[in-house]
Nucleic acid binder design. Structure first.
Lengths: 195, 195
DNA sequence: CGAACTATGATAACAGTGTCAACATTGCAT
DNA sequence: ATGCAATGTTGACACTGTTATCATAGTTCG
């Protein structure tokens, strides 16, 4: 039976898993790319590299856990934006801008999410990750205009997601310089009026 | 003075630089991610790992060269699509679909381009890379509808690029399954009619 | 309370990587 | 022919992720 409360000694760390995730998160937050080394991380934690293997089967699993945390933050951010902005055209615009802004402010976390997500089936619990992504999708879908067929709404949601995702990526990759005005203009240009 | 024609011996390879680029390209083409190892590549070339350092200052430079080649292919593909499809709304649709399709068919090359491009200032010739990107942009811009102000055309081009780039990325990252019909519908939904 | 068990840590080692310094071989030019 | 520059090789260093083995401490139970 696992202990309810963590133990803390000079030898035993206390709650290494949580500490590793927190420090990993801090390290990634202050980067542009999610470059995380197991040994380097362990060093900063004052612990041997192999100690982490008691809490994660391998490096990928650790990164997956961090990606899940990052995705949770992004999803919550989007959900809040969708709530604040309401639905309809205006809602979509604000939600879209929020997506790009979060990506610009958290480049490495944003990258981590989409770098890790394709390997989810192997290392991480696909249910959790799927749920987190459903929440993200829900935030976007909630901002779609009404008076559309279900299929049209789906296509519109994919269109919207693609637009802001691509814009964020192009900014992060240095292809277009970040300019809030430009972002707004680009998102505003989207119009879901039926042809 | 460097020799005009390559030499070829058991000891001297002949044209290692070209061979490395070609084999690197082949290796990446058959992958989903541009994972390239210097030593592994050298092994397959039947040459010692350090021999590559006579032709590239480091691994990043090699990857940059490959990225430049990949970008050239993508740019040519887009230019041809723009030429074939003509301008206007229909042109944009076809050019956009071409972009996504190329990305799906060359996932690792597509990734390589945007993974490497931000480090261009350091290792690779920024002019070449910039030129190749300008060509790509030109292909997209050529498909923008006329009768817009210059600024509107710029915004529209960014909008279009973001849309197809994001759609391609989401497909490559396994977030939406590739379906040509869905891609077409998503791109077609774009409408640049002035509000 | 003491002994066994489990959870968690540390060390040593292996294979792999990118990279550098030193040395070897070849072709070209004077 | 000799010397130089281009090119390739070997050996080493520091680093990485990972595993096997051993050490320590907290928990549980007779």
């Amino acid at each position: 039976m696992p202990p309810i409360l963590p133990m803390s000694t000079a030898y035993h760390h206390g709650d290494l898993r949580a500490a590793a995730l927190q420090m990993g998160m801090e390290r990634i937050e202050n980067q542009d790319h999610p470059d995380l080394g197991l040994r380097a991380l362990a060093r900063d934690l004052g612990v041997s590299a192999t100690a982490l293997y008691r809490h994660f089967p391998n490096k990928d699993a650790l990164l997956d856990a961090l990606a899940l945390e990052a995705l949770g933050r992004l999803g919550a951010n989007q959900a809040k934006a969708a709530r604040d902005a309401g639905g309809g055209r205006n809602g979509f615009i604000e939600v879209g801008i929020t997506y790009v802004t979060w990506a610009v402010e958290n480049p490495a976390l944003f990258r981590l999410i989409y770098t890790r997500v394709e390997k989810v089936d192997f290392d991480c619990d696909p249910t959790e990750m799927g749920e987190a992504f459903n929440q993200l999708r829900a935030g976007i879908a909630a901002s779609m205009p009404e008076g559309m067929s279900a299929e049209q709404r789906n296509v519109a949601a994919l269109h919207a997601w693609s637009l802001v995702h691509g814009l964020a990526m192009l900014i992060l990759d240095g292809q277009v310089e970040y300019d809030p005005e430009m972002v707004r203009k680009t998102v505003v240009m989207t119009d879901f009026r039926p042809a």
